[in-house]
């Protein structure tokens, strides 16, 4: 397969996954904000959402204050925010358009349909229920896209690139969410607040509440939640699950063989796997956890870079 095409498939998949994850976070926040006790709490919550879905620094470079409607606009439709839902879905469609000959027609149609309806949405998004509907549309579009991929694509190279993109994006997002929530816990540990609510939010952001509660009825211990979202091998958004699958996918691409060009990538993926399994969540305090999560996010970037280099997805930078 052409490197350019592989690159587009990888980014198509990451963009769809990112849009879905961000839409879910925003959707949860739109409900939580109704319960925010005061402006300070509300502002803090929005800062966190911005940090998870985009970049707080970028936002503040463009706007001088936290305003709910501005933030919603920024995260959904803003052309200025590279991670806005609209941009993500547009990039995904462009990537799909550039690789149409590799994709099931239905996948293209799902993304194209979203694009065709986009104009109408842009004119409508003025109330919270409308925004919620839009978020739901983003989520179902992503899920339909995944459904098409799973039900009709051969388990060949294009499929594998799509999946690697999805898992890396997911793993990184999970780490990001946890990092933000850990930070909040650390800051407020001194006040001895009830953390129940924070961990509930983390689970909701990552669509893990239902699965979690079945295993740990109805407690919300930070250690349990963290272990679940980091190390639970059966939950499809846990860091471990995602990284295990990235490794498996690369093994599949290489048909189980390790060649000189793929050696670095394999070594790194195995190292990441070890780091996850050697970490004892229960024995760590918030600070250590945040360090672990920061380190893992760096690892994600390294893996992404190595993956691109191994398959020539990125043009090597010329020396002269």
């Amino acid at each position: 397969m052409l490197s350019r095409v592989a690159d587009s498939l990888y980014w198509m998949s990451r963009n769809i996954e990112r849009a879905e994850n961000n839409a879910r976070v925003l959707s949860v926040q739109l409900i939580h904000m109704l319960e925010a006790s005061d402006q300070q709490v509300l502002d803090r919550d929005w800062e966190e959402v911005l940090e998870i879905c985009a970049s707080t620094v970028d936002y503040h470079n463009q706007y001088d204050r936290l305003d709910t409607n501005t933030i919603i606009q920024y995260l959904t439709m803003s052309p200025m925010n590279v991670n806005s839902l609209m941009n993500g879905m547009t990039y995904a469609r462009e990537n799909a358009k550039a690789t149409r000959d590799m994709l099931p027609d239905e996948l293209w149609e799902v993304l194209n349909e979203f694009h065709l309806d986009q104009k109408e949405w842009m004119e409508q998004l003025s109330t919270t229920p409308q925004t919620q509907q839009y978020l739901k549309k983003v989520i179902t579009t992503s899920m339909t896209a995944q459904g098409v991929i799973e039900s009709s694509m051969s388990r060949g190279i294009p499929y594998t690139f799509i999946k690697v993109g999805k898992w890396l994006e997911r793993a990184e997002k999970t780490a990001r969410v946890l990092n933000v929530i850990c930070e909040k816990n650390r800051k407020e540990a001194v006040h001895g607040t009830n953390n129940y609510y924070y961990w509930l939010t983390a689970l909701q952001f990552l669509n893990g509440y239902d699965s979690y509660i079945k295993e740990h009825p109805p407690t919300m211990e930070s250690k349990h939640v963290l272990s679940f979202l980091i190390k639970e091998g059966s939950f499809p958004r846990s860091i471990r699950y995602c990284m295990d699958h990235v490794l498996e996918a690369v093994q599949h691409l290489e048909q189980g063989k390790i060649s000189h060009y793929s050696e670095d990538l394999f070594t790194m993926l195995e190292k990441v796997q070890e780091e996850i399994s050697d970490t004892s969540i229960a024995d760590m305090d918030m600070e250590q956890l945040m360090k672990f999560l920061d380190h893992f996010q760096d690892r994600c970037m390294t893996v992404s870079r190595m993956f691109s280099e191994t398959y020539y997805l990125v043009e090597p930078v010329s020396v002269n």
């Binding site: 397969m1 350019r4 020539y312």
Partner: peptide, 28 residues
């Protein structure tokens, strides 16, 4: 391209080395 089952390439996907044309794939 899709119906004929041949690769759809752009100029940047091709390179000429010693008068032979190659496409840049994930395997080189």
């Amino acid at each position: 391209a899709q119906q004929m089952g041949i690769e759809l390439v752009e100029g940047r996907d091709l390179i000429v080395k010693e008068d032979v044309v190659y496409m840049k794939t994930i395997r080189g």
